[in-house]
Structure formats: structure tokens, C-alpha cells
Amino acid sequence: MFLQQLVNGISVGGIYALIASGYALIYSLLGFSNWAHGEVAMLGAYVALLFTASLQLPFIAAAIIGIGGAAIISFLNERLAYRRIRENKAPTMFLMIAAMGLSIVFQNGSMLLFGAKFQKFPPIMPVSSISIGSVHVGVLDLLTLAVAAVALIVLEIVITKTKFGLGIRAIASNTATAGLLGINTNKMFALVFAIAGALAGMAGVLLGLKYNVYPTMGNIGLKAFIASVFGGLGSVRGAIVGAIVIGVTEVMVSGYLSSGLRDLITFALLIIILLIKPSGLMGVSVEEKA
């Protein structure tokens, strides 16, 4: 029972982490909360659903199209909305408000387009759980875990070990100087939004598989936000750790106490962490020297 819950919790955390890491990446570059990020996940799930349920494509193909679709939508958000605001040198608050607007447009748009009802992916697994000794583990949970782990490890390697990652970290630290040294910041922003979108799309599809697809499923972005604050705003690694802690806590509280207490305890945990370490679990504090 406990092990099964733990796997379930980590897999839920993995889904949160896919959203939270992209959210943290965007925050680290542009300093604003991209409230439309959860909706990108939702749209990715709908695109995949459309291709597999209505157009009868194999699930894998539909999932890849869903992930690609989410990447494009995220890229377009930056290209058509956020970039203009940035170029007008408006305060970052405006970016956040634009993101809230986009989030509402996407939610209501999909309500109109797809209806408010819960939809399901056609079953993709022949069995729903496997037993190892006396422990039953959900196959979907294991799949989710594997996909999230691979995606996040690749992301981590790209950010810490590649030249592209060095460019991202440079922009996050000092955008103007990164430009002076030859980094095309607009191009990098576009790429980062596409990557974050793809990760969100992945989360959307996995979430849809585990539960349902519906227009407000993007509210899960709030969980990713909490995970990100928990881990240290702007820190991708922190967001991943925060997401897993929150996923496991939620599942354990629901399983052993009551699902009504789930959000209460998650927020209590967040507040405690912020009281002890205001920069979050893994937030770095490097002061600027004049």
C-alpha cells in the first residue's frame, strides 16, 4: 500500500515537475509568472485527444503531435503577446496580466470548442497494474514516472552542460549583457518557450491519461507555481524537487488522512518552507555588488 502510494505520488509529482520546470525556466528569464502555462498543458492534451480519439491515429503519434502543438502554442504566446509587451519596455506586471488574459481565453475557448465534459483517452495499456510480490503498482504511474524522469534529466543536462544552456543561464543572470556578448536573446526566449511548451504538453497528455481531459485541467498550473515557489522561484532544479515533494505529500495526505486536507497541508508546507528559507528550498541568493 505505502509503496504503491509512493509511486503514485512521485508520478503525480513528475507531472507537476514537467509543468513547473518550464514555468521556472520562463520565470528565470523574464521574471514573470506565466499563468497561461497550465493552459498550454491542457491544449496539448486536447490536441493529442483529437488526433487519437477522433482521427484514430496511434496513441504515440497523437501524443507527439499534442506535445508539438503545445510547443507551438507556447512559442506563439511569446511571439504574439509577450514579445510586444517586452519591446514596449512595459513593467513585468503587464506580462503577468497578459498571461492571465491568455489563460482565460484558452479556458473559455476550449469550453466552446470541446464542451465542458470530461473526456477520456482510449485505453492504451493492456493491463492497468502489475504486481511485484505483494505490491501492486499502476502501469500508467510507472510510464509517467519514466517519461517525466527522462524529459527532466535531458532538460537538466541541456541547461547545465551545453552551450545553449549556458546562453539561457547568462540571459537569466543579466539579459542586457548577454546581448552585448552576442546572444540573440529574442531567439533564445522563443526557443525556451517552445521547450517549456513541449514539457507542458507532455504533462497534459500524461495527466489526461491518468485522469481526464477537460477545459479547466490547466488549473494544475497553480500546483506547478507552488512547486516553483517551494523550490526557489526561477530555479529549475528547485521546481522539480518542489513538484515531487508536493505530489507525494498530496497523495499521502489523500491516502492516509483525507483528500479534503490535501490542499490545506500543501499550502501549510509551502508557508513553513518560506518562513524557514524565504528564497525557497534551492533558491540561490547571490547579491549584486555595486
Binding site: 543579466n174 552576442g182 547571490v286 547579491e287
Partner: peptide, 25 residues
């Protein structure tokens, strides 16, 4: 190359990474 006023180093990057950004292109 322009070495800007107030140094503008990448505070969250290591010294080595700061140097490598200089060679970015």
C-alpha cells in the same frame, strides 16, 4: 567588444562560465 559600466558580470554564473559566455559566438 563592449565592457560595460558597472562591470555587469553574470552574478549567478561561475567565473569560468562568465568567461565562456565571452566566447559564446
Amino acid at each position: 567588444v563592449h565592457v560595460p559600466e558597472g562591470r555587469q558580470i553574470f552574478t549567478h554564473l561561475t567565473v569560468r562560465d562568465n568567461l565562456l559566455v565571452g566566447a559564446y559566438l
